[in-house]
């Protein structure tokens, strides 16, 4: 029992869950979106600042949620900063595929060292009811990049 749980709640997740990084707003954000998981009432807002060169200069979030959703959001902000919108979208596709088994399998070589860090979230596959916790922040980021104001983990 504890082994499976350790797969889900890896040290990195527990750490990010307790001490989320970039847990703040971005004053000069170019866009932001609100995400909610109607199942549990978890809520978060993701802020992004994208430069003229399409590069994500800053990204942050605020909100309330379980360890998985907080950790996923926190790790996401670290992972996508400095990436292009295209690059961030690829990462979204990969996370989505990895957690749900849906969509295209993404060639992870393009993520280099980041691939392992993203892989930490793959434990949710064994916990179907928790998949939405892991993907909420990513859906919200995607919504923000697309100029939408609302995202739902149902998306």
């Amino acid at each position: 029992m504890l082994d499976e749980l350790r797969e889900l709640y890896q040290e990195v997740i527990l750490d990010h869950g307790k001490n989320p990084r970039n847990f703040r707003d971005v004053e000069d954000a170019t866009s932001q979106a609100h995400g909610s998981n109607p199942l549990c009432g978890d809520q978060l807002v993701v802020y992004v600042k994208v430069g003229d060169d399409d590069i994500i200069q800053d990204v942050s979030f605020v909100g309330k949620g379980c360890a998985i959703s907080m950790a996923s959001a926190s790790m996401m902000t670290e992972l996508v900063r400095g990436k292009t919108i295209d690059g961030a979208n690829h990462m979204f596709d990969h996370v989505h595929h990895m957690c749900t088994g849906e969509g295209e399998d993404v060639d992870v070589t393009e993520f280099g060292e980041d691939a392992d860090r993203i892989g930490v979230l793959s434990g949710v596959r064994e916990f179907p009811v928790r998949v939405k916790c892991a993907t909420l922040a990513w859906h919200t980021l995607k919504a923000a990049m697309e100029g939408k104001e609302e995202a739902s983990s149902e998306a």
Partner: peptide
């Protein structure tokens, strides 16, 4: 601890 984390455990 968030209720969902408790529930999973």
């Amino acid at each position: 601890i968030h209720p969902h984390d408790i529930s999973s455990i």
